[in-house]
C-alpha cells in the first residue's frame, strides 16, 4: 500500500511535464531551390495543447527552432606570416558540422533558459558551435578562435544564423517560424527540432525533417560532374576538340 502511494506520488510529479503536448508541422517536406535564384524559405507551424487538468501557466511559452542541414567535414585553416609571405598554417577539422544551421527563437535565447541547460541540451548557436564534441579540442582553448572563424565564415554565406525574433506567437498557443534558405544551402536532409520552454524548463520537443532539392541547369551539370566524373571529363574534352575543329574550318586560310 505504501509502495503504491509512492508510485502515485512519483507519477503525479511527472504529470506536469507531460501536461503540454507540442504539435508541429512544416509547410513543405520537399523544398526546391533553383541555383540561380536568391533562395527560399519554409514555414514551421506549431500548436501547444494542454490537457484539461492542467491549469494555465503564469508565464508565456517560449519556442526554439533549430534547423540542421546535411553533415559535412569542414576544415578551417589559418594564414600566418612566414617570413615575408602569408601561408596557411594551423588547421582545425570539424568532422560532423552541419552545412546549414539556423536557430530561431521567440525571444533572446539568454532570456529563455540558463547557460547550463543550453550547453547540456545544445540549445542556441553558441552552445552548438562551442560544444566539446563539435571539433577536436586543443589545450588552452586554442580551438576557440577556429570555432569563431567557422561561425564568421558560415554567417557571411548566410548559412549559419540566429534570429531572436524568428518565432512569432499568433495566439498564446499557436506559433509560426519562417526558416530562411539561401541559394547556397546544399541539397540533402534537413532536421527541424522544435523545443518548447516555459519558465526556463523544457516542456516538450519534436523533430521533423525536410529534403532540400536543387534544380536548375547548373546544379544538374554539377551533379553530373560529381557522379559521372569520367564521362564529364570526356564530354568536356570532346566539346573542346569540336570547337577547335570548328574554328579551324571557319577560319581556314588556305
Amino acid at each position: 500500500m505504501r509502495r503504491l502511494c509512492l508510485l502515485l506520488i512519483a507519477l503525479a510529479s511527472i504529470a506536469p511535464a507531460s501536461a503540454e503536448t507540442l504539435i508541429t508541422s512544416l509547410s513543405n517536406h520537399r523544398v526546391l531551390i533553383n541555383s540561380n535564384y536568391t533562395g527560399t524559405s519554409i514555414a514551421v507551424f506549431g500548436a501547444i495543447e494542454r490537457d484539461a487538468q492542467t491549469i494555465a501557466r503564469a508565464t508565456s511559452y517560449d519556442v526554439v527552432v533549430t534547423v540542421r542541414g546535411p553533415r559535412q567535414l569542414l576544415t578551417v585553416r589559418e594564414k600566418q606570416k612566414v617570413g615575408p609571405v602569408w601561408v596557411n598554417q594551423e588547421q582545425q577539422k570539424f568532422p560532423l558540422a552541419p552545412a546549414y544551421l539556423s536557430v530561431l527563437t521567440s525571444k533572446p535565447i539568454d532570456e529563455i533558459t540558463s547557460v547550463q541547460l543550453r550547453q547540456r541540451q545544445k540549445i542556441g548557436l553558441a552552445a552548438i558551435i562551442n560544444a566539446p564534441d563539435f571539433t577536436y579540442e586543443r589545450g588552452g582553448g586554442a580551438d576557440r578562435e577556429f570555432r569563431e572563424a567557422l561561425y564568421r565564415l558560415k554567417a557571411q554565406e548566410g548559412l549559419y544564423l540566429e534570429d531572436e525574433r524568428g518565432v512569432t506567437f499568433l495566439t498564446p498557443d499557436i506559433f509560426r517560424a519562417s526558416i530562411p534558405l539561401p541559394a547556397t544551402a546544399p541539397p540533402g536532409e534537413y532536421d527541424v527540432q522544435v523545443v518548447l520552454f516555459a519558465d526556463t524548463v523544457i516542456l516538450a520537443s519534436t523533430v521533423t525533417h525536410f529534403e532540400l532539392v536543387k534544380t536548375g541547369f547548373e546544379e544538374q551539370v554539377g551533379a553530373v560532374a560529381r557522379d559521372w566524373s569520367l564521362a564529364y571529363g570526356l564530354a568536356t574534352a570532346a566539346m573542346a576538340i569540336f570547337f577547335g575543329w570548328l574554328a579551324s574550318v571557319i577560319f581556314r586560310r588556305d
Partner: peptide, 17 residues
C-alpha cells in the same frame, strides 16, 4: 597577394559526407 596581410586570415573548405 602573398605579401599583403589578408583581411580574413581564416578560410573554410568543406568536404561532402
Amino acid at each position: 597577394e602573398l605579401v599583403i596581410e589578408p583581411q580574413e586570415p581564416f578560410s573554410l573548405t568543406a568536404q561532402e559526407r
